[in-house]
Deep mutational scan, measured.
Amino acid sequence: MSIQHFRVALIPFFAAFCLPVFAHPETLVKVKDAEDQLGARVGYIELDLNSGKILESFRPEERFPMMSTFKVLLCGAVLSRVDAGQEQLGRRIHYSQNDLVKYSPVTEKHLTDGMTVRELCSAAITMSDNTAANLLLTTIGGPKELTAFLHNMGDHVTRLDRWEPELNEAIPNDERDTTMPAAMATTLRKLLTGELLTLASRQQLIDWMEADKVAGPLLRSALPAGWFIADKSGAGERGSRGIIAALGPDGKPSRIVVIYTTGSQATMDERNRQIAEIGASLIKHW
C-alpha cells in the first residue's frame, strides 16, 4: 500500500456533525475584513475531517454560486457509477468541435482521439476544463441527475441546474447552481471519507484534487512546506470566486475548508488575494 493510499485508508468514516464552535475567531475577523475589502458577501466554513465538527463558520447557510467547484461533486457521481459497475474509467468518449465550450484547454486538443472518462475527470478537476465537465454531465444524465445524486447522499441544498458555462452566471437571489458552505463542506467530507465511494474511488478523487493546477493563487499560496492540500477552485460572473479544499500539516488532510464570495467589483487578483489571506490566517491560527 502506497503512502497516499495509507493516508486515505486511515481517515475515519464518522458522520458526526456538531454545532458551531468558534475556535479561532482571528480567522473570522479576516473573513469579515475580506467582505469589507471586496464589498461582497463571503461564506466560510472549516470542518474537522475526522469528526465533522464545525471549527469556524461565517454565513454557513447562505447560498453562493458553486461555479467550477461542482466538478468535484460531478466526478464523485461518476466514480459512484464506476463502483456500481455502470461506468468504466477507461471508456473512451468521442466528441466534436460543436461540443467545445469556452475554456476547454485539454479537450480542445483531443478532438481526433477523444478522451477516457478518467482523463475527462482529471481535466475537469485539475484544469477546470468546461467541455470535460459537460461531457461527464452527459454520462450521468445531466445537471438534474447530479442534484439527485447529492439528494441521495443527504445534501438537499446543493443543486446544479445548467451546463458550462451558463452555470457561472451568479445572478443575485437566483438559487440555480448554488450551494451553502455548510452543505458543500459536509458533502465533500462524505465523498472523501464516507462509505459512499470505495476506497479506490475516494483515493482517486483526492488524487485529482491534489493535482489541481489552477488554484495556485488561493490557499496554496499560503501553504507552508510539508502541508497537504487537495482543492478545487471556481470563478464566475459578478465577482464570484470560490474554493473547496481538504488540507492539513504533516502531509495529510485533517480539515475541510470552503470559501465562497460573490457580488464584488474587485479584480480577480484582488479576490484571489483576499482568499489567500484568509488561508494565511487559518494556517497561522491552526
Rank of each mutant, 00 (worst) to 15 (best):
F6Y: 06
R7V: 07
R7D: 07
L10S: 09
I11S: 04
F13V: 10
A15Q: 06
A16G: 15
C18G: 04
F22V: 07
F22G: 11
F22L: 12
H24L: 10
T27P: 05
L28G: 05
D36N: 07
L38C: 08
L38V: 07
G39A: 15
G39V: 14
R41Q: 08
V42L: 11
I45S: 08
I45G: 02
D48E: 09
G52A: 07
K53E: 14
L55V: 13
L55S: 06
E56A: 14
R59C: 03
P60D: 15
E61R: 15
R63C: 06
R63Q: 10
F64Y: 06
F64W: 01
F64V: 04
F64L: 02
P65G: 02
P65Q: 02
P65R: 01
M66I: 15
M67L: 10
S68R: 00
S68G: 00
T69H: 08
F70V: 11
V72W: 00
L73S: 07
L73Q: 04
C75L: 04
A77S: 09
L79P: 00
L79S: 02
L79T: 01
L79F: 03
L79A: 03
S80F: 12
S80R: 12
R81E: 07
V82I: 09
V82D: 04
V82N: 05
V82M: 06
V82E: 05
D83C: 02
D83T: 04
D83Y: 01
A84G: 13
G85V: 05
G85W: 05
G85T: 06
G85M: 09
G85A: 12
E87W: 04
Q88H: 14
Q88A: 12
Q88F: 12
Q88P: 03
Q88E: 13
Q88S: 15
Q88I: 09
G90S: 14
G90Y: 15
G90C: 10
R91V: 05
R92H: 13
R92C: 07
R92V: 15
R92G: 05
I93T: 04
Q97S: 15
Y103T: 04
P105A: 05
V106A: 10
T107A: 07
H110L: 06
L111P: 07
L111R: 07
M115S: 04
M115T: 03
E119A: 14
I125N: 01
T126V: 10
T126P: 01
T126A: 12
D129A: 00
T131N: 02
T131R: 01
A133V: 01
N134H: 03
L135S: 03
L135C: 04
L136C: 03
L137I: 12
G142E: 04
K144E: 13
K144S: 14
K144I: 11
E145P: 11
L146A: 05
L146V: 15
L146P: 00
F149I: 06
F149C: 08
F149S: 08
F149V: 09
L150A: 11
L150S: 05
N152H: 15
N152I: 10
N152Y: 11
M153R: 08
T158G: 04
R159Q: 14
L160T: 09
L160R: 03
D161R: 01
W163V: 12
P165R: 06
E166W: 12
E166A: 14
E166V: 12
E166H: 13
L167G: 04
N168E: 03
N168Y: 02
N168D: 06
N168L: 04
E169D: 14
P172G: 12
P172V: 13
P172L: 13
N173R: 10
N173T: 15
D174A: 04
D174V: 03
D174C: 06
D174Q: 06
E175C: 12
E175G: 12
E175M: 10
E175L: 14
E175Q: 12
R176S: 10
D177S: 01
D177N: 03
T178Y: 01
T179D: 00
M180R: 12
A182G: 15
A183C: 09
A183L: 07
A185T: 11
T186N: 15
T186D: 09
T187A: 10
T187K: 00
T187R: 01
T187I: 07
L188Y: 08
R189S: 14
R189L: 11
L191H: 03
G194D: 10
L197G: 03
A200L: 08
S201A: 11
R202L: 04
R202S: 11
W208S: 02
W208C: 03
E210K: 13
A211E: 15
D212G: 07
D212R: 04
K213G: 09
V214E: 03
A215E: 04
A215S: 11
L218E: 01
L218R: 02
L218S: 02
L219G: 02
L219R: 02
R220Q: 04
S221G: 10
S221Q: 14
S221F: 10
A222E: 15
A222R: 15
L223E: 01
L223M: 11
P224D: 07
G226C: 09
W227V: 01
I229Y: 04
I229R: 01
G234A: 10
E237R: 09
E237A: 13
R238H: 13
S240P: 01
G242C: 07
G242L: 00
I243D: 01
I243H: 01
I243V: 12
I243R: 00
I244F: 02
I244L: 10
I244N: 01
A245T: 06
A246S: 12
L247R: 00
L247Q: 01
D250L: 10
D250R: 13
D250I: 13
G251E: 11
K252P: 10
K252R: 12
P253G: 08
S254C: 13
S254I: 11
R255S: 03
I256L: 09
I256T: 01
V257G: 00
V257A: 06
V258T: 06
I259Y: 03
T261E: 06
T261S: 11
Q265R: 11
T267N: 11
T267G: 14
M268I: 11
M268C: 05
D269E: 13
N272D: 05
I275Y: 04
A276T: 08
A280G: 12
I283P: 01
I283T: 07
